[in-house]
Design a protein around this nucleic acid. Structure first.
Lengths: 129, 129
DNA sequence: CTAGTTGCAAAGAGTTTGCATGGCG
DNA sequence: CGCCATGCAAACTCTTTGCAACTAG
């Protein structure tokens, strides 16, 4: 339970917010924040804490060995599906109507209940094509 | 690079085929095959080789730190989307019509080109609800 | 016979943890 | 002040690699 607002935690949140639409490895975050005077262990510990709090999401790119972290900014973020570009690494939000339609359709046709929070759809965004 | 059919490779393929609808960590595979006289390094090396050959897919479950491997059996497997149950770990194939519709819709509405091979949709299957 | 493979053990990479110190409330 | 959080380094876990022996073709 993170009760204290330490400067390290603030640094991390600030950093994540500034990279809200990217997915970063713990390594990258640690490397960048170490320069700002935050220890590696603090980065890991806070990342874990924030994930438990739901403020950060842990995604994983296929083909890569590392785990990626991503700021779970907005509230509505939890209700929409995410599209991750394999080229630029940015994340996009799928429009609600489209997302709803998809979830409903799969539920009906495949009898499979999609978990919006955990699902990340990979592909190539319009800018990278 | 010509490939030899060694007993280790055969063991691995057999094992994977027997667990075709599950996703397993390299660890699990290694542990089980070690008992059958296959060394850990061979498991890793063959898993990597098979992934390069496209016979095995590397997926990753959100919330988990490890990488999961899964047998990419059928050919048509490459063209359809995958649904992974978070409860039982099994993988299902999304019917082609539904998958096509989804890919097309996202391409149109979001201008995002989905990569069917890399995308794994998480949720709960009908048996686990 | 030749080149791909294997096992083992040592080396790496990434992440976690114990403990004394430091800082928020 | 009491407690949680931080740093640092050691500990760990998972995966990769060097090398000599081995084997499929």
């Amino acid at each position: 339970m993170a009760r204290y607002v330490t400067k390290q935690r603030r640094s991390l949140l600030g950093y994540l917010a500034r990279h809200a639409d990217e997915s970063l490895t713990a390594q990258q975050v640690a490397a960048d924040l170490t320069a700002s005077g935050v220890s590696v262990s603090s980065v890991y510990r806070n990342l874990t804490a924030l994930e438990a709090e739901g403020k950060v999401r842990r995604v994983s790119r296929s083909g890569s060995r590392e785990t990626y972290y991503q700021y779970a900014a907005a509230e509505g973020c939890r209700a929409c599906l995410h599209l991750a570009c394999k080229r630029c690494g940015r994340t996009f939000h799928m429009g609600m109507p489209a997302a709803d339609a998809l979830v409903d359709r799969v539920a009906q046709e495949e009898k499979f209940q999609i978990d919006r929070e955990d699902t990340v759809i990979y592909g190539v965004c319009k800018d990278c094509r």
